[in-house]
Amino acid sequence: MKITLGLFVVTTIAWLMLSFALSLDVVEGSIAAVRIFGLVDEPTQFVRDPETGEVIRDVETGNLQRQALSLDSFVIGINRFVFSLAYIFGILIGLFATMPLVTGFLEQGRIDLLLSKPISRTKLLAGHIAGVLLVVFLLTVYLIGGVWFVIAFKTGIWQFEFLLAIPTITIMFAVIFSVVLTTSVASRSTGLALVLAYGTIFVSAILAIRDQIVPQLSEFWGSLFVGMYHVLPNYFEVMQIMTQLASKETVTSFYPFVSSVLFGITLYVFGFIIFSRRDF
């Protein structure tokens, strides 16, 4: 409870600081400049000849001619930055913050009292999961929604795609939380559950660069690595999908997201089976 409140306070501070920052004269001026002239400061986008597709060079200096940054790109950049931070750190901290809820739920003296009530175990566990996810969802809405609103209100650019970050963060939190919940229910060790959840994220980071790693491995280990990629959640690739969506770029495949959700569902099913059968 205290940690959740702490996150709420930190979130409030974050978007209040953003609000104040956007009110500073220098930032106001920068936004105005971007709005009028655009910023020649985007290294990845170059001006190309619409007919040949070749990059245009400056006649005098010979340097590659860079694309002027539009206000849209500016807003997308900020939003991508906020989303990435919220996605990586929000989920990691969210897991830590919701840990006391799991510990308290399975604590001797509380779980037996809950189980003695006229409710099925499935309903009880589902209610608990729903409660945890609701807390995370509300915190995400508060952070992402707040940041989105402040930026949109200030710049006048209402980039609604960025709001997809809310369900994405909540769903991916639910996927990783399935590891915590099932491990806790099976072992009643929340420490182990947290280690496995963070371990899953860590392994996911390695699996995300499988294209570089698999060719270095033998056939057996390579197959095993690819197999793990398909079984385990693709935490970082989902983040890339989300940033592509927020940037209005075309997403080539939603497979990482789908396989991650399937992983979560499978683990929840195991969690429910164990919870309904075990002694407390």
Binding site: M1, G104, E107, Q108, G109, R110, D112, L113, S116, K117, P118, I119, S120
Partner: peptide, 17 residues
């Protein structure tokens, strides 16, 4: 679970939030 509709229980070392 319907059997528990009309029962009350005080566990040893009970804990409330």
């Amino acid at each position: 679970w319907n059997s528990r509709r009309n029962i009350g229980f005080l566990p040893e070392n009970h804990r409330f939030p």
